[in-house]
């Protein structure tokens, strides 16, 4: 695969040309924060962002998406088949997306996700500024060893651009005449990676991520679930910002004629009071502590048992989003590591 070295002007020209060809969603400033949004000009792209408020997987599993349309002809599938580029995805968020790929493809494949995913080109960008709560360095997600379609790494004022798939190489066709990266550049990139593995550790996890499943296995009755969840508002903010939360609700939106409408899928969250409620009124996770524990078990054990991947990528968004300040996974896991008390 090709690795090019380009200057800032070339980068801008390249991005502007992509915008002319397909939808591009990129990290941009929004107030004092950053968010992925439709990119209208390369100059608005902020590859130096620290963290995007919402994980970019929102463009693959949107907060609200139409699954079906219904009317006189019955139900019909609705699929999003328009190509797009996600530009500047951080490695930890890319890991989240790769996990979603597994989740939606395994068992009974979900063609709504997979169709949109097939249209997406993932341009990953190594982190330039650490966000206040990131701990990707502890979760082995600070650097994306493989995967994605293109990898960007900033080297002083330039960028190294690595094609990582046929789709990525196709996107890089416009850079064909640009110089190849030299051995020194690659050496520098390795230093960036080593640096990021250390930099993205604003919270220090005292156990190895691969030890979490076994640790959780012994911690079902640990007092931490009750202690932390006492202050939980059951607002689901931690679910909303999480790159690996994909649970959903489905509802019908009907038009005024009561004949036509859409079946839509919306994000849901296991921390919300009614998540495990059934129609008869029985709630299978009535207590806050049960819902709080379920979330950590799902991230650190249940999904691991299914896919051998810890479903926490260390982005730290939940820490910042939690109003009650109880959602720091590192605090919870370190506490469990100390033992029962």
């Amino acid at each position: 695969m090709t690795i090019k070295k380009i200057g800032p002007t070339t980068l801008e020209r390249w991005v502007d040309s992509l915008i002319g060809q397909q939808r591009v969603f990129g990290a941009q400033a929004q107030g004092d924060k950053f968010a992925f949004a439709p990119l209208t000009q390369a100059a608005r792209l902020r590859l130096d962002y620290d963290v995007a408020v919402t994980a970019p997987k929102a463009f693959l599993q949107p907060p609200c998406e139409t699954l079906l349309r219904f009317g006189a002809r019955g139900y019909e599938s609705v699929l999003d088949t328009e190509p797009f580029v996600l530009f500047g995805v951080h490695p930890y968020d890319a890991v989240g997306i790769l996990q979603m790929d597994t989740v939606f493809a395994e068992g009974q494949p979900d063609i709504h996700y997979l169709t949109r995913r097939a249209q997406a080109t993932l341009v990953v960008c190594d982190v330039q500024n650490a966000s206040p709560n990131v701990f990707a360095g502890c979760m082995n997600t600070a650097v994306l060893e493989e995967g994605g379609d293109v990898l960007l790494t900033r080297i002083n004022d330039d960028y190294l651009v690595e094609g990582r798939s046929a789709k990525g190489e196709a996107l890089m066709k416009a850079l064909a005449s640009e110089p190849e990266a030299e051995a020194g550049d690659l050496q520098f990139r390795k230093m960036v990676w080593d640096h990021n593995r250390q930099l993205l550790r604003r919270h220090e996890l005292k156990v190895k991520p691969e030890d979490l499943p076994a640790m959780l296995d012994k911690s079902y009755d640990h007092p931490v679930w009750e202690e932390k969840s006492k202050r939980c508002f059951s607002c689901g903010s931690c679910n909303l910002v999480c790159p690996t939360c994909y649970c959903f609700n489905v509802r019908e939106d009907v038009r005024w004629d009561l004949q036509n409408g859409e079946r839509v899928r919306t994000w849901d969250g296991c921390m919300l009071t009614e998540f495990a409620l059934v129609a008869g009124g029985h709630n299978f996770r009535r207590k806050k502590a049960e819902r709080y524990r379920h979330r950590y078990y799902r991230k650190g054990k249940y999904l691991y048992d299914q896919h051998r991947q810890i479903a926490c990528v260390g982005c730290g968004r939940c820490i910042g989003a939690c109003v009650a300040k109880i959602a720091n996974p590192v605090e919870v896991y370190n506490r469990l590591a100390e033992g029962p008390r």
């Binding site: 989740v103 068992g107 979900d110 649970c247 849901d268 059934v278 299978f284 379920h294 078990y297």
Partner: peptide, 24 residues
Amino acid sequence: FERHMKCGVGKCGHCQINGIYVCQ
């Protein structure tokens, strides 16, 4: 078992008991 089996295909998460999906 009764649970909220929203999607029926092991994706939506509602019917999960520990690692088990009741719908599947």
